[in-house]
Simulated assay, not measured.
Amino acid sequence: MKIENRWLDVPVAGEAEPMSAYLARPAAPGPHATVLVGFEMFGVTDYVRAVADRIAALGYTAVVPDFYHRSGRRICLPATAEGRSRGLELLSQVTRDGVDRDIQALLDQLPGPHAMVGLSVGGHIAYYSATRFPFAAVAAFYPAAHRRHHPPRPPHAHAGAHGRHRRARHPPAPARRRRRPPLHPCPTRRDRLPPRR
């Protein structure tokens, strides 16, 4: 399928400068559902843009938000030790509030239904965002590598096995983990699952 791609400047609430986002979509007229793509720690790299292009070739509008836009414009780091070190510095500046406002700005501008795919640290951002926004679907790919550097989890849920949500105990019990019934932030997911026995 033929696609077209370009950069967007997206106004974000509370920010003086817009956020850059890479957009790829089918060249044929829509409507096309929107898939947000959360980047790796290296930023909006050629690889991540190629992933967005592949999603667009399947018939979706794919957009890669630049979550580092408060630290610089269109940051793209090399996949080297130096790039990783700089990426960890940049990740320490990414906040839950910033992610919320960035994603809300995109959802306000792009047609639904909306979904999100996350790569590496973007997988953590995608999982967190699933607890905040009504995505139709969320997928996280290799999200475990930077566990200490993703935006903090919301206070009402934490990640368990197989991506389930469990209620957090305050303070969490360090020695023993108790099973809790799953929470379903996406109503469409709840509708598709059979009842638990």
Rank of each mutant, 00 (worst) to 15 (best):
M1F: 10
E4L: 01
R6G: 01
L8A: 10
V10D: 04
V10W: 00
E15P: 04
P18G: 01
S20L: 10
R25E: 05
A27L: 13
A28V: 03
P31K: 01
T34Q: 03
F39L: 07
M41C: 04
Y47S: 06
A62K: 08
Y68V: 12
R70A: 03
S71K: 01
S71V: 06
G72R: 09
L77S: 14
T80M: 12
A81M: 06
G83H: 10
S85M: 05
R86T: 09
R86L: 08
L88D: 13
E89C: 10
L91M: 12
L91D: 05
L91A: 00
Q93H: 12
L107V: 09
A115N: 14
V117K: 05
V121N: 03
G122R: 11
H124C: 04
A126K: 08
A126L: 07
A126I: 09
T131D: 08
F133V: 15
P134E: 05
Y142V: 05
P143M: 00
H146V: 05
H150I: 06
H150S: 05
H150K: 05
P151M: 01
P155W: 12
H158L: 10
A161D: 11
A161I: 11
H162W: 13
A168D: 14
A175S: 14
P181R: 14
H184S: 12
T188W: 04
D191P: 06
P194V: 01
